[in-house]
Design a binder for these strands. Sequence first.
DNA 1: ACAGTATTTATCCAACGGGTTAATTTCTCC
DNA 2: GGAGAAATTAACCCGTTGGATAAATACTGT
Lengths: 235, 235
Amino acid sequence: MAKAKRTLKWQRDPEGMRLRILEAAKQEFSAHGLAGARVDRIAAKAGANKRMLYYHVGNKDELYLAVLEGAYDKIRSEERGLDLEHLDPPEAIRRLIEFTWNYFLRNPEFLSLLQTENLARAKHLKKSTKVKSMHSPFVEMIRTVVRRGVDSGDFQVAVDPVQLYISIAALSFFYLSNSATLSVIFGRDLLDNKAKDERLAHMIGLVLAALTGQSAALFEVAKAPKSRAAAVQTV
Amino acid sequence: MAKAKRTLKWQRDPEGMRLRILEAAKQEFSAHGLAGARVDRIAAKAGANKRMLYYHVGNKDELYLAVLEGAYDKIRSEERGLDLEHLDPPEAIRRLIEFTWNYFLRNPEFLSLLQTENLARAKHLKKSTKVKSMHSPFVEMIRTVVRRGVDSGDFQVAVDPVQLYISIAALSFFYLSNSATLSVIFGRDLLDNKAKDERLAHMIGLVLAALTGQSAALFEVAKAPKSRAAAVQTV
DNA sequence: ACAGTATTTATCCAACGGGTTAATTTCTCC
DNA sequence: GGAGAAATTAACCCGTTGGATAAATACTGT
């Protein structure tokens, strides 16, 4: 009784509320896409009233854009924390692939949001000056790493850093974002631990083999006796 | 007058109608996703009445599944038409990459549909026994090509064919399906002809370099004089 | 303590959207 | 040539949904 009095009817918490709204919106948009997302569900998940969304962020589209900007902001921030410049080039590339893979694994909503935004042909992203100014540090990182690798003789090729960046992202992104349909097609779970480990090893092997020309050392199997090669490959 | 009499009010054409409905539905679902698609728009695009959709195909979900099944059917059919078994292994892989790239370019709705279905975690695909039974011939193709390549000494590695298949698809798929956001992020059009040519060359170079270990021959730039290497790379 | 403002709640509503019902027209086969 | 089935049209139904309005409640500074 006395307690009920202390917690009157509600407390003010604008910042907390805004964060809860954005978090709820992120979940809702990534789970259902833009058209499939329900404003009422976002409000409910945020423990709020629907009116609050409009008060603190804006209408559905503005809400969506805020979520998208937040997602880019987050990955850019983590990317900046990765220091690859001083590693030897093959190790730097390996770390880059591992980071990308793990980031996507840890943030599946990011993948969904990008898929959704691309379905919309980046209509919203184009309007966001904020995101346009958030350049990934990876392109320059890759450029210098590749240059160093070529100079040191580790790498055989001076590959376009943008292409390489896209390729590294692609190898992880597609596997994870399309794992649902791929798992059905192949009739096996691509997301169990064994499959994930194999995928990471494959991606690292593929990219490093291409750059260094040392296929043998990077994929498990080399030009070993054929019988053994056949045995080791995982299928 | 006499003519107007001949074309009374409408003609019967169940097969044609069904096809027009499915084509319209494909466009609508790929342009707007499942939740964003509008049944009325599909009807209008098909030059039909909304009731016709339900009469000839079913409700929205069934319509969507029919479209999805049609999309898989089409790509599997074209895949079967590709005969790579008798080519020498590097050439076979090159053709495989080119086919994948061009198929995705020619059928952007296929990409969108897959994105949409993955956003839905393959909920509909799982219910389709039809699609589950449509195995891609590429996995076995790749398996034998890789085996031949290893035996002949063209390839240094016996890579898992499923992994390679996914990787080849990934390199094209991600680039194209995410070209809208990537173009904004990089501030350049990834779909103009020059960019597309470069992308195809990059993908072929990457995969073949990894398999053969001959990076130099495959990417444009080798361990040439550094100044030249820097000049040639595109960025 | 109280006036003014920021924050939150409780309703409401008009448009939309998927789906249905019932009537109408064309075709086919006897 | 007409009866019955197949195909198509037109109109309607009703729950949902994004968004708006207005009133209530909790802070803040003075």
